[in-house]
């Protein structure tokens, strides 16, 4: 019984990790290549969720909605880059932070105006709404497996794109020296817009995958963006591999901490004390991990070599 619970929680942790990776991949791309800090990345996650929710209710098909919402989120990212973000590349990080903070306020309020203050739940088709018994006693919702599968596919696709295509080569070249890439005749401006749109689509995808479980709501991006920051800090800012491993690590530690920490504490202290301390400590667990990693390695676990 205990081990099946552990297995289910491991899967939940894996799922959170995958979602965090989809979010941190976009941030890593924009930071690695454009040296741009995007606080509003969480708003794109929210946008993806809302677009998907609207389209699902309109078309009646969740899968169709995802297929439509993905390019729409990418388009939104593309437009944001063209209108606001590109004017900030030459500025310092403080300006990035302030301007994208303003962007969050705008996007959150716009979402509020369009979709109203309440969240929107997404109904799942019956095929995805069932449960699967993986092993005896280990029953998991099908959709959670779909999230993990989709996320891993996206990660694989991203890996292939960055490491084995011409566009990926340009992205890597841009990350190590963007001025030189521009001087060699590559249209840097379009490359940047494209990368930003790709990041937006990945964040949007994460939002679409979460929405059927948690519903699309205002401010959902602002909660998760900080955890995403923790992921890329631990992984080493600008490193895709670091982001992937750290995302899984954080996902697992956060989930396992929330489910098993109180049992662990009960071994060490009185039940009453454990029940007070465990929620607080498990809420802080990923931050404590971040502090511990930074105390030993300020540059993160897998800092990119070129920086």
């Amino acid at each position: 019984m205990e081990s099946s619970l552990l297995l289910i929680q491991l899967l939940n942790g894996l799922q959170l990790g995958i979602l965090l990776f989809l979010l941190s991949a976009g941030l890593t791309l924009t930071f690695g290549i454009m040296d741009f800090v995007n606080l509003a990345h969480g708003s794109l996650y929210m946008l993806g969720a809302f677009l998907c929710a609207s389209l699902t209710l309109y078309s009646g098909s969740f899968v169709l909605a995802v297929l439509l919402a993905l390019p729409l989120t990418a388009l939104a990212g593309f437009a944001l880059e063209k209108i606001v973000v590109r004017h900030l590349y030459e500025r310092n990080h403080l300006d990035h932070v302030l301007a994208t903070f303003g962007l969050i306020l705008c996007l959150d309020t716009l979402a509020h105006l369009i979709w109203g203050p309440a969240g929107i739940a997404i109904p799942l088709p019956d095929t995805l709404n069932g449960q699967v018994e993986l092993l005896t006693g280990v029953v998991v919702p099908t959709f959670r497996l779909l999230i993990i599968g989709t996320g891993l596919l996206a990660a694989l696709g991203l890996y292939l794109l960055v490491n084995h295509t011409r566009i990926g080569m340009l992205i890597r070249a841009g990350a190590s020296n963007r001025t030189m890439v521009g001087a060699l005749g590559v249209d840097i401006s379009t490359l940047f817009s494209g990368v930003f749109a790709l990041g937006a689509a990945l964040a949007g995808l994460a939002g679409m995958l979460v929405a059927p479980i948690a519903e699309a709501s205002i401010g959902m991006g602002n909660d998760i963006i900080i955890t995403t920051f923790v992921v890329i800090i631990i992984g080493g800012i600008g490193s895709m591999k670091g982001a992937f491993l750290a995302a899984l690590l954080i996902g697992l530690i956060d989930t396992l901490g929330r489910s098993f920490l109180d049992d662990l504490f009960k071994l060490l202290m009185s039940t009453e004390a454990a029940e007070t301390a465990a929620p607080a400590v498990s809420a802080m667990l990923v931050y404590l991990l971040m502090a511990a990693v930074l105390a030993v390695r300020p540059q993160g676990l897998f800092p990119p070599l070129s920086r």
């Binding site: 606001v84 004017h87 900030l88 500025r91 300006d95 302030l98 301007a99 903070f101 303003g102 962007l103 969050i104 306020l105 705008c106 959150d108 309020t109 716009l110 105006l113």
Partner: peptide, 13 residues
């Protein structure tokens, strides 16, 4: 928050 956010972006730019 919408005009406020826009103002923030404009003041940075």
């Amino acid at each position: 928050h919408l005009p406020f956010g826009l103002l923030l972006i404009f003041s940075v730019l």
